[in-house]
């Protein structure tokens, strides 16, 4: 049982990190902080994937030329390489939107923007 807990405690830390990111996304009103929260959330998911690929006593998945070398699994690495780039693309688009919102509304606080919008709606 103790071995079992030790083997999965890494996952729990990653889960805590993920939830911290998600917490920032939901609880903060500042749009830039929301994007930062999203980055932390996604990076923690990357940690989860990479820790799946690890093999005890293994080495990086680059062929060494020696027989009987134990390699870590390359597939999660490939997936995360794609996901990192997708994440940055999302960040870039989000920041562009934030800049436009700042231009039009003069604020990037979600609650202030919401009250602007309700005023517009009731007009």
């Amino acid at each position: 049982m103790i071995h079992g807990i030790l083997g999965i405690w890494n996952y729990w830390i990653v889960i805590i990190l993920m939830m911290t990111g998600l917490f920032i996304v939901i609880s903060r009103h500042n749009l830039v902080k929301k994007m930062v929260g999203l980055t932390i959330f996604q990076t923690s998911v990357f940690l989860f994937y990479i820790s799946l690929g690890k093999v005890q006593g293994g080495t990086a998945p680059i062929l060494t030329g020696y027989k009987n070398t134990l390699y870590s699994n390359p597939l999660p690495h490939v997936l995360i390489l794609t996901a990192i780039v997708v994440g940055v693309a999302t960040t870039a688009l989000g920041l562009a939107l934030i800049l436009r919102i700042k231009n039009e509304y003069g604020t990037i606080e979600e609650n202030e923007i919401a009250s602007f919008n309700t005023e517009e709606n009731s007009k």
Binding site: T39, L47, H77, L81, T91
Partner: peptide, 26 residues
């Protein structure tokens, strides 16, 4: 951490794109 988990390519990209490029954008 990615380096210590044997994901050198990912570590490279995360440092360049995640820590570098995205911070520049911010």
């Amino acid at each position: 951490i990615f380096v210590s988990l044997d994901a050198v390519d990912v570590a490279f990209t995360e440092a360049a794109v995640g820590a570098g490029l995205s911070t520049v954008l911010y």
